[in-house]
Simulated scan of single mutants.
Amino acid sequence: MTPDLFDHGDEAPTGREALAPGALVLRGFARNQAEGLVAEIDAICARAPFRHMLTPGGQRMSAAMTNCGPLGWVSDRRGYRYQAVDPDSGKPWPPMPGAFLRLAADAAAEAGFAGFVPDACLINRYEPGARMSLHQDRDERDLSAPIVSVSLGLPAIFLFGGPNRSDRAERVLLLHGDVVVWGGPSRLRFHGILPVKEGAHALLGRQRINLTFRKTA
């Protein structure tokens, strides 16, 4: 049975769900930390507000984003890259909160990737209708480290494909507090998010927030 997209209560599922070798969903892993995480996100956004970046082709990205940590991911007509300075303010990105670092390390260890220390956290905001097309995370120099992705707020359908864009993508419902980790043989799999459906979440309202932790170098 397909879970109710708007059931975010204490009865939401917990546990581990394997997606592929080196990839799994940790159901509800971040749920108990959500209020603290959202408070940290608000503080980060006060210093580095959400913005809609442009693709190298000049298209406005559907999801708004910002960053925290030593490096931030940016996109504009010059391409995709990591840099230490927020291009909007000319200042360093806000530091990565300790709660973020602990959550990322704990989730990675739970998935079999001990010792994960991210140096970049991408914070994406999806309002209803926002999406993320299939893509690979391959701008990082250290491809031995996993990706850790935390879902907060509205539910979303996560697309988890194969090493080629044309490979069939599995559809995975992600609820508030779920964490997806993929690395090793799954590190370069294509993935994305289908358009987020209209709704209201008790903590975040009409939005989904995604934290994506990466080790770039």
Rank of each mutant, 00 (worst) to 15 (best):
R16N: 06
L101T: 02
D167Y: 01
E11D: 15
L154S: 12
L194Q: 15
H8Q: 15
L188W: 00
D142S: 03
G15V: 00
L37F: 07
V38P: 07
L5H: 13
H176P: 02
F213H: 09
T216M: 03
P185E: 15
R214W: 10
E35T: 15
G72Y: 14
D142H: 10
R208G: 13
N124L: 14
K91N: 07
V25K: 01
A23D: 13
P146I: 07
F213L: 08
H8A: 12
E11I: 03
A108T: 04
G129I: 00
I193H: 05
R168Q: 12
R206L: 01
G28N: 08
H8G: 05
G79V: 01
C121I: 09
D7C: 06
K215I: 00
F100L: 09
M65G: 14
R206E: 15
R187V: 11
R77H: 14
V196C: 06
P155F: 10
R208T: 13
A109K: 13
E40L: 06
N67H: 09
L24S: 12
A109S: 14
M132S: 11
G199I: 01
D167S: 15
N67P: 13
P195C: 14
F190M: 01
A34E: 15
L24P: 02
L194G: 02
A84N: 14
G115R: 04
A108N: 11
E35G: 06
L152S: 11
G129V: 03
P3E: 14
A39T: 09
C68F: 02
N210F: 02
Y126E: 09
I41E: 08
Q83M: 14
I193Q: 10
A63G: 04
R60D: 02
G129T: 13
G22E: 06
D106L: 05
H52E: 13
P128H: 11
D42I: 12
P56M: 06
G192I: 10
P195K: 02
A202C: 03
D7Q: 14
E17I: 04
R189G: 00
Q83L: 12
L152C: 01
P163E: 11
L134P: 03
A46Y: 01
W93F: 15
S144G: 11
V85P: 05
G162F: 14
A111H: 03
A114M: 03
Q207F: 00
N210T: 05
K91I: 00
S133A: 15
P49Q: 13
Y80Q: 06
G36A: 08
N124C: 09
V148N: 13
F190N: 06
Q83D: 13
V181L: 08
R77G: 11
M53W: 07
F50E: 12
P128A: 07
G15K: 09
R60A: 13
P56C: 06
V172A: 08
R47W: 05
D142V: 00
L26P: 10
G69I: 05
H176W: 05
F160Q: 09
